[in-house]
Write a protein that binds this DNA or RNA. Structure first.
Lengths: 184, 184
DNA sequence: GGGATCATGTAACAGGTTACATGATTCA
DNA sequence: TGAATCATGTAACCTGTTACATGATCCC
């Protein structure tokens, strides 16, 4: 679990929290469909959604109860718990560790932080930017270290390594610039 | 399978092709270990490596034979086939479709293209850059379309959508700039 | 004697995709 | 008559991660 902290599960928690703390699967699924802002960021098929709801229940972050509907099929109503809310806040307050996680996980965090608590969203974006800047520094020094050779490396390998680091650096810097804007 | 065309399998094909067309699992595994240029780009644990070798054999891209070693355990020697070489070339000549695939899949392509055929590497990087520029155009026009409102959207949703598109655009443009350098 | 190296894997688990099953109801 | 909506899921499959199993030999 080094990598990626279940953005889908937390998105479900976030949706429940926004929607007065309760909802059912079919209803939640609509938020991931065509035209919804979250659909541009994370995809979630019904199968996985119901799977995640059960996982959240096992973790104690939601509870469920059945609501009969008369003619229509009965609904499983999921209710976010105190522990669920605490977990959501914890998750929303932590920036992601890697540049590649910005596109999906960070954007999901940002979406919910913006609706739940504007100040939290600003703090999140600011800290994410600082994380990126630290990463950029590290990449820049790795790049510099390539030119002061310790062992002899094949020149072709060296050129390729430089390309890899330059790509990572440029992506990370671009993210930092964008984050300065997102933190407004 | 909309997404990502098995970079690990193709990396194995590429290693076999570089190494006179043949090799065994343990030997291939070393190329993904500490300090190797590919290790910065793609991770491949032994378990998955052996799994991929069997898949490649089922696809007809490699054949295998056992080489007894006397005292040491016998080796499964894998040999790339004509079909395997053709598949490798096809894969190496196609840029990736999405910006997020540049970091892993495109870099693997670039690594092998550079060692196998310099002209191919330049063509690949150039076409990848053009793909990125087209994507950037599309994102820019989606951004512009946000300001000419068809339906009424919540202003908060609109701001979030703009952020998402701006992030994708900045990442794609950064990749295009880097690719101009990589195509030299 | 203990750990690294050689060499090939299996097992368990986590996450995700695609497709399908059910069965009533409303709408064109 | 047929499609879409409501509502919940299962099944099969693929990719990937972590950890372990085997058993000899080489090196400190």
């Amino acid at each position: 679990m080094s990598n990626g902290e279940m953005p889908a599960e937390h998105a479900i928690l976030g949706l429940l929290d926004l929607d007065e703390g309760a909802g059912h699967g079919y209803d939640l699924a609509r938020h991931f469909g065509e035209g919804e802002p979250l659909a541009d960021v994370i995809r979630l098929e019904p199968g996985m959604l119901y799977h995640h709801l059960k996982k959240l229940a096992r973790a104690g972050w939601v509870t469920s109860s059945i609501e009969p509907q008369g003619i229509r099929p009965p609904r499983q109503i999921y209710q976010i718990t105190g522990a669920g809310r605490a977990e959501l806040r914890r998750w929303l307050s932590e920036p992601v560790a890697h540049t590649r996680e910005i596109r999906l996980e960070f954007l999901v965090k940002l979406y919910f932080a913006r609706r739940l608590d504007r100040a939290l969203a600003l703090r999140l974006a600011t800290e994410q930017r600082e994380t990126c800047l630290r990463l950029a520094d590290s990449l820049a020094s790795q790049l510099a270290a390539l030119d002061t050779p310790g062992e002899t490396v094949a020149p072709d390998d060296l050129a390729f390594r430089r390309l890899v680091l330059e790509l990572r650096l440029s992506q990370t810097r671009a993210a930092a610039v964008w984050l300065a804007d997102a933190a407004k």
